[in-house]
Simulated scan of single mutants.
Amino acid sequence: MSHAPTSIDPTKPSIARVYDAFLNGSDNYEVDREVVRGVRKAAPEAADLAVENRAFLIRVCRFLAARSGITQYLDCGSGLPTAENTHQVVRRVHPEARVVYVDNDPLVLAHSRALLEGDPTAVFVAEDIFEPERLLANELVRSHLDWSRPIALLHMGTLHHYNGEDARTRKDIVRAYVDALPSGSYVALSHFLDPEDEFSATARKMEEMFLHSMMGSGTFSTRAELEDLFNGLPMVAPGLVRCADWQPDAPHTEPLNAARRCIAGGVAHKP
C-alpha cells in the first residue's frame, strides 16, 4: 500500500489487514505481515486458517440461501471485501437478499462503502461487533432488516479475537444476538480450534504467536468450548466440525494439514 487513509494507524496490526495478508492481499502493512510471519513459524501452512474460514463462509451462505430460504444477513466482522462476498453469494439464489455488513476497521469501512455504493440492499455499519446491544440498536441495522422475519447471523473468525476485560464471555455475546433474532433465524460461527489430538501442540503454538504479537488476540478453543457458544441451539448437519468438513463441495483427496485441522465451524437454527 502506498499510503494510509485517514484514521488508519499503520504501526498497529488490524485483524482485517492480518487476514488480508494471510490471503496474499494488498491491503495490509508491514506490521500486519509481521504477525503472519510469526504465526507461520508455528505452522508454515497457517494461511489456511484464513482460506478455510473464507471457504466456509461461502458454503454456509450458499446453504442458507438455497436450502433454508434466508434472504436477510447480518455479517459481523465482515473484514476487507474480497472475491465472493456475502451479498454476491446469496444473490445468485435470491437477487432481492438484504445484507448488513458490520466492522469498525476504518480501512474496511472505506473499501466496503466503495464496493456497496449505489446498492440499496447491502449496507455497511461501523460498530463494535462485541457490543451486540449497541450494534442491534443501530438505526440502519434496525431499518435495513425486517426483524419480524428470519435473519442469518454470521460471526466468521471473529470471536477468537474477543479479549473482554469484564465478566462478559463470548457465549454471552452470542446469546445477546440470539435473543434478538426472530424465530426461524440461523447462527453461523467459525473459530480457531484446539483439536485435542496430535495437532494440539501446533494450535497452541499458533495461539502463542497470535497473543504475543502486536495484535494480541487469537485464542484457540476446544470443541466443547465451541459447542457451548451456540447456547444449546439445534445444529444443522454435520454439526460443529472442522470448517473443511462442513458440507464440502468435494471429498478431500489429501489429508488435512495442521492449520486446516485447527479451525472449526457450525450453523445452528433458532426454532
Rank of each mutant, 00 (worst) to 15 (best):
P182C: 08
A43T: 09
A259D: 05
H155N: 10
A110Y: 02
L189Y: 06
A237R: 09
S185G: 13
E133Q: 11
A259T: 11
D48N: 13
P106W: 09
R204T: 10
T11H: 10
R98M: 03
E131A: 09
D146H: 07
D32N: 10
L109C: 13
N231W: 11
S190L: 05
D48I: 01
P106S: 06
F130K: 07
D128Q: 04
I15C: 08
T158Q: 14
A42W: 04
D179P: 07
R59Y: 00
G265W: 02
G216H: 12
R170D: 15
F230D: 12
F22N: 14
H87E: 01
G218W: 03
A83L: 12
R175P: 03
E196D: 07
F63D: 15
P248K: 03
L233Q: 06
L189C: 12
A122P: 08
R170P: 08
F124G: 09
L140C: 02
V100G: 05
N163W: 02
R113D: 03
R168V: 15
S183A: 15
F210N: 00
A50F: 00
A244N: 09
I263G: 01
T202R: 11
A176K: 15
E227M: 14
A4Q: 14
R175C: 09
L140E: 09
T253M: 09
M156H: 11
R149L: 13
E139T: 12
C61K: 04
R40G: 01
T6D: 11
G118E: 08
F63L: 15
K270R: 12
F220Y: 11
E45C: 10
F63R: 15
T121Y: 02
M1L: 08
V102N: 04
L145G: 10
G79C: 10
A224L: 05
P106E: 08
P120Y: 01
R113T: 11
D27H: 11
S68R: 10
A167G: 14
N28S: 13
V31L: 05
G25Q: 03
E45Y: 03
D128E: 07
V141C: 06
V187E: 10
S190G: 05
D103E: 05
L140N: 02
T253W: 06
R204W: 08
R17L: 05
A122R: 08
A110C: 02
R91A: 03
Q247Y: 05
I15K: 01
V178Q: 14
P238K: 06
L107V: 15
